[in-house]
């Protein structure tokens, strides 16, 4: 079940271009700037809500996205036998896919879920690597 909900990845690798084209964002500089854009603009564009970025680690490689409005979970209750289910896991996949397309490898996981009685939804983002652009033609002599 969790694997199925990781499906967001394929959404993310397409969604990023839709976002870049519509928002006219022309560059994604640092991880910090990029996360801010996700929180302020991308969530607004696609889910009609905003979230806050907080809990940065010292080295700036990890942060949390925190939100309370969540259209995904409106009218949703988790039955007791599915308490383990990460219902919003798809958002993790979307963000991971989208950031991979701009050459940032991130780990995203849900750490707080209002469906399970937490006060807020919280997603933890960890930047693993920010890669350089690859030259695609490798067969050159």
């Amino acid at each position: 079940m969790h694997k199925t909900l990781c499906r967001g990845y394929n959404i993310g690798i397409r969604l990023i271009d839709e976002f870049l084209a519509k928002s006219k964002v022309s560059r994604c500089g640092s991880f910090r700037e990029t996360v801010d854009i996700i929180a302020k603009q991308a969530f607004l564009m696609f889910l009609n809500m905003q979230c806050t970025v907080s809990k940065w680690t010292q080295d700036g490689s990890e942060c949390s996205l925190i939100f309370t409005d969540n259209p995904l979970t409106e009218f949703v209750e988790l039955p007791s036998e599915f308490q383990e289910l990460q219902y919003c896991n798809i958002l993790c996949g979307v963000i991971r896919g989208a950031l991979e397309m701009i050459n940032m490898d991130v780990d995203v996981r849900i750490v707080g879920d209002m469906l399970k009685g937490d006060e807020v939804h919280e997603m933890r983002l960890r930047l693993k690597e920010q890669k350089n652009e690859d030259f695609p033609y490798k067969d050159d002599e």
Partner: peptide
Amino acid sequence: YKLHFLETPSGY
């Protein structure tokens, strides 16, 4: 001739 170039953050 003139060459016009556009690069997007996603690498297109």
